[in-house]
Design a protein around this nucleic acid. Structure first.
Lengths: 189, 189
DNA sequence: TATCTAATTAGATGAACATCAAATTATAAG
DNA sequence: CTTATAATTTGATGTTCATCTAATTAGATA
Protein backbone atom coordinates (compact mmCIF):
# COMPACT_ATOMS: atom_id res chain seq x y z
CA UNK A 1 0.00 0.00 0.00
CA UNK A 2 1.26 3.46 -0.82
CA UNK A 3 1.86 6.10 1.79
CA UNK A 4 -0.67 8.58 0.43
CA UNK A 5 -3.59 6.22 0.72
CA UNK A 6 -2.63 5.33 4.24
CA UNK A 7 -2.37 8.97 5.26
CA UNK A 8 -5.66 9.83 3.62
CA UNK A 9 -7.40 6.99 5.37
CA UNK A 10 -6.23 8.06 8.81
CA UNK A 11 -6.83 11.70 8.07
CA UNK A 12 -10.39 10.86 7.11
CA UNK A 13 -11.01 8.72 10.17
CA UNK A 14 -9.31 11.21 12.45
CA UNK A 15 -12.40 13.31 12.96
CA UNK A 16 -15.07 12.78 15.61
CA UNK A 17 -17.96 13.45 13.28
CA UNK A 18 -16.77 10.99 10.70
CA UNK A 19 -16.13 8.33 13.31
CA UNK A 20 -19.67 8.82 14.52
CA UNK A 21 -20.92 8.38 10.98
CA UNK A 22 -18.93 5.18 10.66
CA UNK A 23 -20.43 3.91 13.90
CA UNK A 24 -23.92 4.73 12.68
CA UNK A 25 -23.43 3.10 9.29
CA UNK A 26 -21.98 0.01 10.90
CA UNK A 27 -25.46 -0.91 12.01
CA UNK A 28 -26.93 -0.40 8.58
CA UNK A 29 -27.39 2.11 5.74
CA UNK A 30 -28.84 5.54 6.45
CA UNK A 31 -29.84 8.53 4.34
CA UNK A 32 -28.40 12.00 4.74
CA UNK A 33 -31.26 13.60 6.61
CA UNK A 34 -31.23 10.79 9.15
CA UNK A 35 -27.53 11.20 9.80
CA UNK A 36 -27.95 14.95 9.93
CA UNK A 37 -30.68 14.63 12.51
CA UNK A 38 -28.91 12.02 14.63
CA UNK A 39 -25.71 14.04 14.83
CA UNK A 40 -27.30 17.48 15.12
CA UNK A 41 -25.44 18.83 12.10
CA UNK A 42 -26.71 20.52 8.95
CA UNK A 43 -27.04 18.56 5.70
CA UNK A 44 -24.14 20.31 3.94
CA UNK A 45 -21.85 19.21 6.74
CA UNK A 46 -22.97 15.63 6.27
CA UNK A 47 -22.38 15.85 2.53
CA UNK A 48 -18.92 17.16 3.26
CA UNK A 49 -18.05 14.27 5.53
CA UNK A 50 -19.69 11.59 3.43
CA UNK A 51 -17.73 12.69 0.41
CA UNK A 52 -14.51 12.35 2.35
CA UNK A 53 -15.45 8.86 3.44
CA UNK A 54 -16.42 8.02 -0.12
CA UNK A 55 -13.09 9.29 -1.43
CA UNK A 56 -11.23 6.67 0.57
CA UNK A 57 -13.68 3.95 -0.45
CA UNK A 58 -15.32 3.54 2.93
CA UNK A 59 -18.81 4.55 1.84
CA UNK A 60 -20.93 3.83 -1.22
CA UNK A 61 -24.52 4.81 -1.95
CA UNK A 62 -27.78 3.57 -3.44
CA UNK A 63 -30.60 5.81 -4.53
CA UNK A 64 -34.21 5.04 -3.71
CA UNK A 65 -36.48 7.70 -5.16
CA UNK A 66 -35.35 11.03 -3.87
CA UNK A 67 -33.46 9.50 -1.02
CA UNK A 68 -29.86 8.34 -1.10
CA UNK A 69 -28.82 5.64 1.30
CA UNK A 70 -25.20 5.54 2.41
CA UNK A 71 -23.59 2.20 3.12
CA UNK A 72 -20.40 1.34 4.98
CA UNK A 73 -17.88 -0.75 3.09
CA UNK A 74 -16.86 -2.93 6.02
CA UNK A 75 -14.27 -5.00 4.21
CA UNK A 76 -12.54 -1.85 3.06
CA UNK A 77 -12.57 -0.48 6.59
CA UNK A 78 -10.86 -3.58 7.89
CA UNK A 79 -8.33 -3.62 5.09
CA UNK A 80 -7.45 0.03 5.54
CA UNK A 81 -7.30 -0.11 9.31
CA UNK A 82 -4.75 -2.92 9.20
CA UNK A 83 -2.72 -1.20 6.52
CA UNK A 84 -0.31 0.46 8.88
CA UNK A 85 0.49 -2.81 10.60
CA UNK A 86 1.78 -4.44 7.45
CA UNK A 87 3.81 -1.46 6.34
CA UNK A 88 7.54 -1.92 5.96
CA UNK A 89 7.48 -5.68 6.40
CA UNK A 90 6.74 -6.56 2.84
CA UNK A 91 10.44 -6.48 2.03
CA UNK A 92 11.04 -10.00 3.24
CA UNK A 93 8.19 -11.42 1.23
CA UNK A 94 9.80 -10.47 -2.03
CA UNK A 95 13.03 -12.31 -1.52
CA UNK A 96 13.75 -15.55 -3.32
CA UNK A 97 15.62 -18.58 -2.06
CA UNK A 98 18.27 -17.88 -4.62
CA UNK A 99 18.87 -14.36 -3.30
CA UNK A 100 19.10 -15.68 0.22
CA UNK A 101 21.71 -18.23 -0.73
CA UNK A 102 23.64 -15.56 -2.56
CA UNK A 103 23.64 -13.24 0.45
CA UNK A 104 24.72 -16.03 2.78
CA UNK A 105 27.48 -17.06 0.43
CA UNK A 106 28.76 -13.49 0.30
CA UNK A 107 28.91 -12.97 4.05
CA UNK A 108 30.31 -16.32 5.20
CA UNK A 109 33.83 -17.56 4.58
CA UNK A 110 34.95 -21.08 3.82
CA UNK A 111 35.03 -22.00 7.51
CA UNK A 112 31.40 -21.00 7.95
CA UNK A 113 32.24 -17.82 9.86
CA UNK A 114 30.57 -14.48 9.30
CA UNK A 115 33.01 -12.05 7.69
CA UNK A 116 31.06 -8.93 8.65
CA UNK A 117 27.58 -7.80 9.62
CA UNK A 118 25.56 -6.38 6.71
CA UNK A 119 24.30 -2.85 7.15
CA UNK A 120 21.52 -3.06 4.57
CA UNK A 121 18.39 -4.17 6.32
CA UNK A 122 17.37 -6.87 3.91
CA UNK A 123 20.71 -8.59 4.00
CA UNK A 124 21.00 -8.20 7.75
CA UNK A 125 17.70 -9.94 8.30
CA UNK A 126 18.77 -12.85 6.15
CA UNK A 127 22.01 -13.20 8.07
CA UNK A 128 20.39 -12.89 11.48
CA UNK A 129 17.87 -15.58 10.62
CA UNK A 130 20.54 -17.84 9.23
CA UNK A 131 22.67 -17.44 12.34
CA UNK A 132 19.84 -18.46 14.62
CA UNK A 133 19.17 -21.74 12.90
CA UNK A 134 20.99 -24.01 15.36
CA UNK A 135 19.23 -22.74 18.46
CA UNK A 136 16.19 -24.60 19.76
CA UNK A 137 12.72 -23.23 20.27
CA UNK A 138 11.27 -23.50 23.74
CA UNK A 139 14.68 -23.69 25.37
CA UNK A 140 16.05 -21.13 27.83
CA UNK A 141 19.55 -19.81 27.26
CA UNK A 142 21.79 -17.80 29.55
CA UNK A 143 23.51 -14.78 28.12
CA UNK A 144 26.82 -16.61 28.34
CA UNK A 145 25.45 -19.50 26.30
CA UNK A 146 24.17 -17.12 23.67
CA UNK A 147 27.54 -15.38 23.52
CA UNK A 148 29.40 -18.67 23.14
CA UNK A 149 27.03 -19.75 20.40
CA UNK A 150 27.49 -16.55 18.45
CA UNK A 151 31.25 -16.59 18.87
CA UNK A 152 31.40 -19.72 16.77
CA UNK A 153 30.37 -17.51 13.85
CA UNK A 154 31.49 -14.00 14.71
CA UNK A 155 33.51 -12.24 17.41
CA UNK A 156 31.08 -9.33 17.93
CA UNK A 157 28.50 -11.32 19.86
CA UNK A 158 27.11 -8.22 21.58
CA UNK A 159 25.96 -6.60 18.37
CA UNK A 160 24.38 -9.74 17.01
CA UNK A 161 22.68 -10.49 20.30
CA UNK A 162 21.25 -6.98 20.34
CA UNK A 163 20.11 -7.24 16.73
CA UNK A 164 18.36 -10.50 17.48
CA UNK A 165 16.38 -8.86 20.23
CA UNK A 166 15.68 -5.79 18.16
CA UNK A 167 14.34 -7.80 15.25
CA UNK A 168 12.49 -10.18 17.53
CA UNK A 169 14.40 -13.28 16.62
CA UNK A 170 14.82 -13.73 20.33
CA UNK A 171 13.09 -12.61 23.50
CA UNK A 172 14.82 -11.70 26.72
CA UNK A 173 13.40 -11.61 30.20
CA UNK A 174 15.41 -11.51 33.42
CA UNK A 175 18.59 -12.23 31.46
CA UNK A 176 17.08 -15.41 30.11
CA UNK A 177 17.07 -15.69 26.36
CA UNK A 178 14.52 -17.57 24.34
CA UNK A 179 14.14 -18.13 20.63
CA UNK A 180 11.02 -16.62 19.10
CA UNK A 181 9.12 -19.73 18.02
CA UNK A 182 7.66 -17.84 15.08
CA UNK A 183 11.02 -17.40 13.41
CA UNK A 184 12.10 -20.79 12.29
CA UNK A 185 14.22 -20.98 9.25
CA UNK A 186 11.71 -22.52 6.83
CA UNK A 187 9.00 -20.01 7.72
CA UNK A 188 10.82 -16.73 7.47
CA UNK A 189 12.01 -17.40 3.97
CA UNK B 1 -14.61 2.65 24.10
CA UNK B 2 -13.51 6.23 24.23
CA UNK B 3 -14.22 8.10 21.03
CA UNK B 4 -11.61 10.73 21.83
CA UNK B 5 -8.75 8.28 22.02
CA UNK B 6 -9.73 6.71 18.75
CA UNK B 7 -9.94 10.10 17.05
CA UNK B 8 -6.63 11.19 18.51
CA UNK B 9 -4.93 8.05 17.33
CA UNK B 10 -6.10 8.49 13.74
CA UNK B 11 -5.44 12.19 13.79
CA UNK B 12 -1.89 11.51 14.90
CA UNK B 13 -1.31 8.84 12.29
CA UNK B 14 -3.01 10.90 9.60
CA UNK B 15 0.11 12.83 8.70
CA UNK B 16 2.77 11.78 6.19
CA UNK B 17 5.69 12.79 8.37
CA UNK B 18 4.44 10.86 11.35
CA UNK B 19 3.75 7.78 9.25
CA UNK B 20 7.30 7.97 7.97
CA UNK B 21 8.56 8.17 11.54
CA UNK B 22 6.52 5.11 12.43
CA UNK B 23 7.96 3.24 9.48
CA UNK B 24 11.49 4.20 10.50
CA UNK B 25 11.00 3.22 14.13
CA UNK B 26 9.47 -0.07 13.10
CA UNK B 27 12.92 -1.23 12.11
CA UNK B 28 14.44 -0.19 15.41
CA UNK B 29 14.95 2.76 17.76
CA UNK B 30 16.45 5.99 16.44
CA UNK B 31 17.53 9.27 17.97
CA UNK B 32 16.13 12.65 16.99
CA UNK B 33 19.00 13.82 14.83
CA UNK B 34 18.91 10.61 12.83
CA UNK B 35 15.21 10.98 12.15
CA UNK B 36 15.70 14.66 11.36
CA UNK B 37 18.40 13.83 8.85
CA UNK B 38 16.56 10.92 7.23
CA UNK B 39 13.41 12.95 6.70
CA UNK B 40 15.06 16.23 5.78
CA UNK B 41 13.25 18.13 8.55
CA UNK B 42 14.59 20.30 11.35
CA UNK B 43 14.89 18.97 14.92
CA UNK B 44 12.03 21.07 16.34
CA UNK B 45 9.73 19.53 13.79
CA UNK B 46 10.78 16.06 14.87
CA UNK B 47 10.21 16.95 18.51
CA UNK B 48 6.77 18.19 17.57
CA UNK B 49 5.81 14.94 15.85
CA UNK B 50 7.42 12.66 18.38
CA UNK B 51 5.51 14.33 21.18
CA UNK B 52 2.26 13.71 19.32
CA UNK B 53 3.13 10.07 18.87
CA UNK B 54 4.11 9.85 22.52
CA UNK B 55 0.81 11.42 23.58
CA UNK B 56 -1.07 8.51 22.09
CA UNK B 57 1.32 5.99 23.59
CA UNK B 58 2.93 4.92 20.32
CA UNK B 59 6.45 6.04 21.20
CA UNK B 60 8.56 5.80 24.32
CA UNK B 61 12.16 6.83 24.83
CA UNK B 62 15.37 5.83 26.50
CA UNK B 63 18.28 8.11 27.17
CA UNK B 64 21.90 7.19 26.47
CA UNK B 65 24.19 10.06 27.36
CA UNK B 66 23.12 13.14 25.52
CA UNK B 67 21.18 11.13 23.00
CA UNK B 68 17.58 10.06 23.35
CA UNK B 69 16.48 6.99 21.48
CA UNK B 70 12.86 6.78 20.43
CA UNK B 71 11.18 3.39 20.32
CA UNK B 72 7.96 2.32 18.66
CA UNK B 73 5.41 0.66 20.91
CA UNK B 74 4.36 -1.99 18.43
CA UNK B 75 1.76 -3.66 20.58
CA UNK B 76 0.06 -0.35 21.16
CA UNK B 77 0.10 0.40 17.46
CA UNK B 78 -1.64 -2.85 16.73
CA UNK B 79 -4.14 -2.38 19.50
CA UNK B 80 -4.99 1.15 18.43
CA UNK B 81 -5.16 0.37 14.74
CA UNK B 82 -7.73 -2.34 15.35
CA UNK B 83 -9.74 -0.13 17.67
CA UNK B 84 -12.11 1.11 15.02
CA UNK B 85 -12.95 -2.44 13.96
CA UNK B 86 -14.21 -3.38 17.38
CA UNK B 87 -16.46 -0.37 17.78
CA UNK B 88 -20.02 -1.28 18.60
CA UNK B 89 -19.24 -4.78 19.77
CA UNK B 90 -17.94 -3.91 23.18
CA UNK B 91 -17.28 -7.11 25.04
CA UNK B 92 -17.93 -5.96 28.56
CA UNK B 93 -20.62 -3.40 27.92
CA UNK B 94 -23.39 -5.78 28.86
CA UNK B 95 -22.30 -6.34 32.41
CA UNK B 96 -23.78 -4.38 35.29
CA UNK B 97 -21.95 -2.96 38.28
CA UNK B 98 -23.92 -5.32 40.46
CA UNK B 99 -22.74 -8.37 38.56
CA UNK B 100 -19.16 -7.18 38.77
CA UNK B 101 -19.37 -6.73 42.52
CA UNK B 102 -20.91 -10.13 42.86
CA UNK B 103 -18.14 -11.79 40.84
CA UNK B 104 -15.46 -9.99 42.81
CA UNK B 105 -17.05 -10.96 46.10
CA UNK B 106 -17.17 -14.60 45.04
CA UNK B 107 -13.53 -14.83 44.06
CA UNK B 108 -11.88 -12.88 46.85
CA UNK B 109 -11.64 -13.95 50.45
CA UNK B 110 -11.86 -11.81 53.54
CA UNK B 111 -8.19 -10.86 53.34
CA UNK B 112 -8.61 -9.51 49.84
CA UNK B 113 -6.82 -12.44 48.23
CA UNK B 114 -7.98 -14.21 45.09
CA UNK B 115 -9.17 -17.71 45.94
CA UNK B 116 -8.89 -19.03 42.39
CA UNK B 117 -8.80 -17.85 38.81
CA UNK B 118 -12.16 -18.01 37.02
CA UNK B 119 -12.25 -20.10 33.88
CA UNK B 120 -15.35 -18.52 32.40
CA UNK B 121 -14.21 -15.68 30.16
CA UNK B 122 -16.58 -13.04 31.44
CA UNK B 123 -15.67 -13.61 35.05
CA UNK B 124 -12.01 -13.84 34.26
CA UNK B 125 -12.05 -10.44 32.54
CA UNK B 126 -13.69 -8.87 35.55
CA UNK B 127 -11.13 -10.36 37.91
CA UNK B 128 -8.17 -9.42 35.71
CA UNK B 129 -9.36 -5.83 35.48
CA UNK B 130 -9.98 -5.66 39.19
CA UNK B 131 -6.52 -7.00 39.97
CA UNK B 132 -4.84 -4.37 37.83
CA UNK B 133 -6.41 -1.43 39.59
CA UNK B 134 -3.46 -0.48 41.81
CA UNK B 135 -0.91 -0.28 39.02
CA UNK B 136 -0.13 3.08 37.43
CA UNK B 137 -0.44 4.01 33.80
CA UNK B 138 2.66 5.30 32.08
CA UNK B 139 4.96 3.56 34.53
CA UNK B 140 7.46 0.88 33.60
CA UNK B 141 7.53 -2.26 35.73
CA UNK B 142 10.09 -5.03 35.83
CA UNK B 143 8.84 -8.57 35.72
CA UNK B 144 9.89 -8.98 39.31
CA UNK B 145 7.81 -5.99 40.37
CA UNK B 146 4.81 -7.38 38.55
CA UNK B 147 5.28 -10.75 40.20
CA UNK B 148 5.52 -9.16 43.64
CA UNK B 149 2.43 -7.12 42.99
CA UNK B 150 0.40 -10.13 41.92
CA UNK B 151 1.63 -12.25 44.81
CA UNK B 152 -0.18 -9.93 47.18
CA UNK B 153 -3.39 -11.32 45.74
CA UNK B 154 -2.54 -14.77 44.39
CA UNK B 155 0.39 -17.16 44.35
CA UNK B 156 0.17 -18.07 40.68
CA UNK B 157 1.64 -14.84 39.38
CA UNK B 158 2.80 -16.41 36.14
CA UNK B 159 -0.70 -17.29 34.99
CA UNK B 160 -2.16 -13.92 35.86
CA UNK B 161 0.74 -12.09 34.28
CA UNK B 162 0.21 -14.10 31.09
CA UNK B 163 -3.53 -13.48 31.12
CA UNK B 164 -2.96 -9.76 31.50
CA UNK B 165 -0.78 -9.75 28.40
CA UNK B 166 -3.20 -11.97 26.53
CA UNK B 167 -6.18 -9.76 27.24
CA UNK B 168 -4.17 -6.57 26.68
CA UNK B 169 -4.44 -5.26 30.20
CA UNK B 170 -0.68 -4.93 30.00
CA UNK B 171 1.96 -4.68 27.33
CA UNK B 172 5.40 -6.25 27.46
CA UNK B 173 8.47 -5.32 25.51
CA UNK B 174 11.76 -6.93 26.26
CA UNK B 175 11.44 -7.35 30.00
CA UNK B 176 9.53 -4.17 30.68
CA UNK B 177 5.86 -4.26 31.58
CA UNK B 178 3.46 -1.40 31.12
CA UNK B 179 -0.19 -0.95 31.92
CA UNK B 180 -2.41 -0.42 28.91
CA UNK B 181 -3.60 3.15 29.51
CA UNK B 182 -6.91 2.36 27.88
CA UNK B 183 -7.92 -0.09 30.58
CA UNK B 184 -8.43 1.89 33.71
CA UNK B 185 -10.75 0.63 36.31
CA UNK B 186 -13.48 3.27 36.08
CA UNK B 187 -13.68 3.03 32.32
CA UNK B 188 -13.88 -0.70 31.82
CA UNK B 189 -16.77 -1.02 34.19
C1' DT C 1 -45.17 22.03 -16.42
C1' DA C 2 -45.02 23.11 -11.67
C1' DT C 3 -43.85 21.60 -7.19
C1' DC C 4 -41.85 19.05 -3.53
C1' DT C 5 -37.95 16.82 -1.20
C1' DA C 6 -33.23 15.50 -0.66
C1' DA C 7 -28.59 16.38 -1.71
C1' DT C 8 -25.02 19.26 -3.28
C1' DT C 9 -22.17 23.45 -4.29
C1' DA C 10 -20.20 27.99 -3.25
C1' DG C 11 -18.36 31.01 -0.25
C1' DA C 12 -17.25 32.72 4.37
C1' DT C 13 -15.33 32.22 9.06
C1' DG C 14 -12.69 30.71 12.72
C1' DA C 15 -9.91 27.04 14.63
C1' DA C 16 -6.27 23.61 14.27
C1' DC C 17 -1.85 22.57 12.72
C1' DA C 18 2.89 21.66 10.20
C1' DT C 19 7.02 23.92 9.77
C1' DC C 20 10.84 26.79 10.81
C1' DA C 21 14.34 30.15 13.18
C1' DA C 22 15.83 31.74 17.48
C1' DA C 23 16.39 31.06 22.14
C1' DT C 24 16.60 27.81 26.03
C1' DT C 25 17.30 23.58 28.66
C1' DA C 26 19.55 19.16 29.84
C1' DT C 27 23.32 16.25 30.06
C1' DA C 28 28.05 14.83 29.22
C1' DA C 29 32.89 15.74 28.74
C1' DG C 30 37.08 18.51 29.20
C1' DC D 1 33.43 25.85 35.80
C1' DT D 2 33.30 25.84 30.76
C1' DT D 3 32.22 24.02 26.51
C1' DA D 4 29.88 20.96 23.32
C1' DT D 5 25.87 18.30 21.78
C1' DA D 6 21.11 16.88 21.53
C1' DA D 7 16.51 18.02 22.50
C1' DT D 8 12.95 21.18 23.58
C1' DT D 9 10.27 25.52 23.94
C1' DT D 10 8.58 29.80 22.04
C1' DG D 11 6.60 32.44 18.70
C1' DA D 12 5.55 33.42 13.86
C1' DT D 13 3.57 32.10 9.31
C1' DG D 14 0.93 30.04 5.90
C1' DT D 15 -2.13 26.12 5.08
C1' DT D 16 -5.72 22.94 5.90
C1' DC D 17 -10.20 22.10 7.37
C1' DA D 18 -14.98 21.70 9.93
C1' DT D 19 -19.01 24.11 9.94
C1' DC D 20 -22.45 27.13 8.63
C1' DT D 21 -25.89 30.03 5.43
C1' DA D 22 -27.61 30.84 1.03
C1' DA D 23 -28.21 29.33 -3.42
C1' DT D 24 -28.50 25.53 -6.73
C1' DT D 25 -29.13 20.94 -8.66
C1' DA D 26 -31.34 16.27 -9.24
C1' DG D 27 -35.05 13.43 -9.25
C1' DA D 28 -39.93 12.17 -8.26
C1' DT D 29 -44.73 13.09 -8.51
C1' DA D 30 -49.03 15.46 -9.28
Amino acid sequence: MQLDKLVNFHKAVGDPTRIKIIILLKEGPLHGQAISHKLGLKPPTITHHISKLRDIGLVYQRREGNTIYFHLHKKMLEFSAKGILNLGEETMMEITEKEKLSIIKNFFDGDGRLTNIPSKRKKKIVILAYLVRNLSTGKNYTEKEINEYIKKYHEDFATIRREWIMHQFMFRQDNVYELNPKVMWPMVF
